[in-house]
């Protein structure tokens, strides 16, 4: 049976049945601190983004690929990272008696998941809340998409029927999303005086998640500038040398 489904599907794809992605609105583009060839991460925004993630998103969304130790990249020192980790409980074991046990998380632990498994996550939410570790890489124009999605809730338009327990979102494919509007003004308190608005929260969480998806971006760009300058300079030397060698032929 499964085979037939796959065959039908392959045929559908081949013979012109690629599924339409839904007519989501075009994404508005934001100015990100991390864009451009010299772009870097905004540490203050990432720290605020982590706060939003911990207080809001992490209730449903896991961050499986990020360990507490990675938070040093957000500007926290070792002791602060230890303290953040200690606020969480993880299951370890088995111990010498063969029992699993709970203990406070250590910096080397991954960020704990809100659900024991995927089925539990679906059962609690009606749909699977995707892991956020790679979300900004896993969508076209990821950072703009996440920002737009978080700020794109509103009353249904274009005659879209929104079933009970679902929500209308301008930027979601098909417009009907299972996630309730997760953020609203004043929901998370900031200590650094940044505005406590939906837009600011969305901006901060995108900064945090972009880092989570691409933690080596700054090092990558710094290395890239050196590598390309080296290659171009070396190519220049080779070009001059080539001119010299070929001089007797021209």
């Amino acid at each position: 049976m499964k085979k037939i489904t796959i065959l039908t599907l392959a045929l559908a794809v081949l013979s012109g049945g690629a599924f339409a992605a839904g007519d989501a609105a075009p994404l508005p583009h934001q100015h990100w601190h991390f864009s451009g060839y010299k772009g870097t991460y905004d540490q203050a925004a990432m720290q605020r983004g982590l706060k939003v993630y911990r207080e809001v998103c992490s209730a449903c969304h896991s961050l499986d690929l990020v360990s507490f130790r990675n938070f040093e990249a957000l500007g926290y020192d070792e002791a602060q990272v230890k303290n953040i980790a200690a606020e969480y409980t993880v299951i370890d074991g088995p111990d010498d008696d063969g029992e699993m046990f709970e203990r406070p998380a250590r910096p080397s632990d991954r960020f704990p998941s809100p659900y024991a498994n995927k089925k539990a996550a679906v059962a609690a939410n009606g749909a699977f809340p995707p892991d956020l570790s790679l979300i900004t890489k896993a969508r076209h124009h990821g950072p703009d998409y996440v920002y737009a999605l978080l700020t794109g809730y509103g009353p249904a338009e274009h005659g879209v029927e929104v079933p009970e327990g679902k929500y209308y979102n301008k930027y979601f494919a098909g417009h009907v999303i299972s996630m309730a509007p997760p953020l609203m003004d004043g929901q998370v308190s900031y200590e650094d005086g940044s505005p406590e608005t939906l837009e600011q929260y969305a901006y901060d969480i995108v900064n945090f998640l972009t880092w989570a998806a691409d933690p080596y971006m700054e090092e990558r760009k710094r290395t890239g500038i050196k590598v390309i300058l080296f290659l171009l300079a070396f190519a220049g030397v080779m070009f001059a040398y080539k001119k010299k060698i070929w001089a007797d032929q021209h």
């Binding site: 760009k221 890239g224 590598v227 390309i228 290659l231 171009l232 070396f234 190519a235």
Partner: peptide, 13 residues
């Protein structure tokens, strides 16, 4: 070298 420079532009940026 020129080709590698173009390749690097993609790898790094």
């Amino acid at each position: 070298l020129l080709f590698l420079a173009l390749y690097s532009a993609f790898v790094f940026f």
